[in-house]
Design a protein around this nucleic acid. Structure first.
Lengths: 241, 241
DNA sequence: CAGTGGTCTAGACCACCCA
DNA sequence: GGGTGGTCTAGACCACTGG
């Protein structure tokens, strides 16, 4: 077995320009806010054409390494704040991709009137009409999630006509349009008796609860509350920053 | 009050080329896997130079809209799978940015020998030496998080010499190097009596637990277990995809 | 006004892939 | 070998900024 690495193809010139600039920044020679040489100065300095310099700087701008302003110059940007992320996967895909069978039980599918909390969540007046569903997701017959959703009728007028034992709400809502904004809140809760029953829990145990609100056209169109038994489910994510 | 929008500056030509291609894809005229016209064909078709076409296609490649292969062509890519993300924020920053005061109590700071579970988590043999810390984070004097960490001595040889009542482990570890890979697992648990005591909980209540492992040079260098009382803390994230 | 970045062109050379 | 994408150049025009 042979190992082939680095076919010693020289890096492209714009990559070399990027490296040149990055190394100046990393060594501290150019600090945050420092003004870089102009494009034409870099042309003279590095002996490449302006388009090449420009491409290097443009890519560094996209990466957040520098900021640029027409008529002003190019400056070393604030280092990016590192964020640590957790991917929230769709439960159905999660179950199927792990080789299990996914089924659902539709408990409730109706229209309701918003109480004051719901009205607040949707930015509407109390009494506004909302569609409402409660569905249990099972993995090989074992309940893994209770999902309760409230949906704006204006956004999904056909919500109540769907057969969610076949295609779940997530699919239906995605087929209409993708949200412009999403809010997630993850709680730990002790579930209600009703939730315990739906999850086949003999005694109340700590549950994960995920609340999601989605916006379209600046309006809340969906609020979902997803409850998972702590002993059977966890959110797992592994990634390379 | 006047509203100024769209200064009717015509979009750049490469943006127009992108729009042209995107609209063909969105209308379904070019389906997934369809081969796009070559760069030189687009040059003739759209009456712009090849560099302009190339920039448009390069940016669409970065965005995952098309895939390209030298000597082969440009093809419509599979639509990106939408992932929903939750940002896991540093507890200290979280508390301070909300206008509260953050303090810590260092409970434990010592070296231990890995049991079989820890050895598994670190990919080492049982009995391997690991640094260990337990710290409580408080918001205005109320415990919000118990963090327990296990750290590879090889990665952070000075770990035991740190004063974590001033600078917490996250800062110390970040100052050494940033992880190449991160794994997160979020649980809901009923806490042990010891954890209840550290969190000032009168009775056990559902707690959020976040487990994090980080890798540097293909090796696990840190495992942390963060426990939050469900009644006092939740992970919140809001973003625009 | 001079200097900056943003864009665009026409032409060129190259590595790569496939028939 | 002919077509593909990847790169690079020299020169150009423009909009924007600051003094």
């Amino acid at each position: 077995m042979t190992i082939l690495l680095g076919k010693d193809k020289p890096a492209a010139r714009y990559e070399q320009v990027k490296s040149y600039i990055l190394s100046r920044i990393e060594t501290g020679e150019w600090e945050v806010g420092h003004r870089l040489p102009s494009e034409s100065e870099l042309v003279d300095l590095l002996g490449v054409s302006r388009m090449t310099v420009h491409r290097a700087l443009r890519e560094l701008t996209v990466d957040g390494v520098v900021t640029r302003a027409q008529g002003v110059g190019t400056f070393v940007a604030e280092p990016l704040k590192r964020v640590e992320l957790l991917e929230l996967r769709d439960i159905a895909e999660d179950i199927v991709s792990n080789g299990h069978t996914h089924t659902t039980r539709v408990i409730t599918l109706d229209a309701i009137r918003a109480d004051s909390d719901l009205a607040m969540a949707f930015g509407q007046r109390p009494g506004a009409r909302l569609f409402h569903s409660i569905i249990v997701h099972l993995e090989d017959g074992t309940p893994l999630q209770v999902e309760e959703r409230f949906v704006s009728p204006h956004f999904a007028p056909d919500y109540l006509e769907q057969d969610f034992s076949l295609s779940h709400p997530h699919r239906h809502l995605s087929s209409i349009s993708h949200p412009e904004e999403i809010e997630h809140v993850v709680f730990a809760v002790t579930p209600s008796q009703e939730t315990c029953d739906l999850l086949d829990l003999d005694a109340p145990e700590a549950c994960l609860q995920l609340m999601r609100r989605t916006w379209v056209d600046e309006r809340v169109v969906m609020k979902g509350i997803f409850t998972y038994p702590g002993s059977r489910y966890s959110f797992v994510g592994r990634y390379r920053p």
